[in-house]
């Protein structure tokens, strides 16, 4: 079990954009293998920036990001194997569901048929078995997001980075996707870093909630959510859930107020 080993560590990260905006200062975060971490904070606090830094899509202006290699070091392409889910589904409109999910595999040079086999299983896994040949415009918002998640899982990544993936969905769809994501996480044992501005979502999904201050973002507090999985609909209406949400909301309010004074 790799559960307790650190997978990636961010130390004293600073990120200042070319226009002078300071997105992050003194940001520290350690993600352990197999855990579900939520990054919670108000809009524009640098949560997404932190996620992009972990993904290597941008380089920090200060601090270090260190990965712990799992298994054979330096096997395959350099760098960690990452799955990323954006705020929007970010699908290629000209490709079918199967074509979109196969993209990461095809980009790493896997053959058409081998990729197709893997992809069929993934599409089934996110509940879209009947839509493999559909084009994105034929799908609902929730279904598009499922495709996006299946694509992120295609390369069997070490870590799944999710940037407010369900923010644009209606509540019913969001609850459903929250349930399915929690189920998927338990089944696959992936490490997940989930950015959200919803207290309810973070408490429902995560084992650990990292609360951030407004810009420039840094970690204000960390809270563990002890409730056992599977959490399910009953947890959503339990007093335990409501109590934890209130506690997290108070911390978030304190973080926001503290940031405003600073």
């Amino acid at each position: 079990m790799i559960g307790s080993l650190p997978l990636v560590g961010l130390r004293d990260i600073a990120m200042t954009f070319a226009n002078g905006t300071r997105a992050l200062t003194g940001f520290d975060l350690e993600v352990r293998g197999g855990e579900f971490v939520a990054l919670l904070g108000p809009s524009g606090c640098g949560k997404s920036t932190a996620l992009r830094l972990i993904a290597g899509l941008a380089s920090p202006t200060g601090g270090t990001i260190a990965w712990t290699t799992i298994g054979e070091p330096q096997a395959g392409p350099p760098g960690p194997n990452i799955g990323f889910v954006f705020q929007e589904p970010t699908l290629m409109p000209w490709a079918t569901v199967a074509g979109n999910v196969a993209l990461p595999l095809r980009l790493t040079g896997m053959g058409r048929y081998e990729a197709a086999l893997r992809v069929a299983g993934l599409i089934e896994r996110v509940g879209l078995g009947a839509f493999a040949d559909a084009f994105p415009r034929e799908l609902s918002g929730g279904m598009k997001m499922r495709v996006s998640i299946a694509r992120a899982l295609a390369t069997d990544p070490d870590i799944l980075l999710m940037d407010e993936p369900f923010a644009a969905l209606d509540e019913i769809t969001r609850f459903k996707l929250n349930n399915d994501l929690a189920e998927l996480w338990r089944a696959l044992g992936k490490t997940v870093v989930f950015v959200t501005h919803s207290v309810f979502e973070s408490v429902y999904l995560a084992e650990r909630i990292v609360v951030m201050t407004p810009r420039p973002g840094r970690v204000f507090a960390e809270l563990a959510v002890e409730a056992p999985y599977p959490r399910g609909e009953r947890f959503r209406t339990s007093s335990d859930y409501v109590g934890t949400c209130r506690k997290v909301a108070d911390v978030l309010a304190a973080a926001t107020a503290g940031g405003a004074q600073a």
Binding site: R52, G56, L57, G79, F84, F86, L103, L107
Partner: peptide, 8 residues
């Protein structure tokens, strides 16, 4: 970004 992520 996605293509960058997969080192296309």
């Amino acid at each position: 970004d996605l293509f960058t992520l997969y080192r296309a």
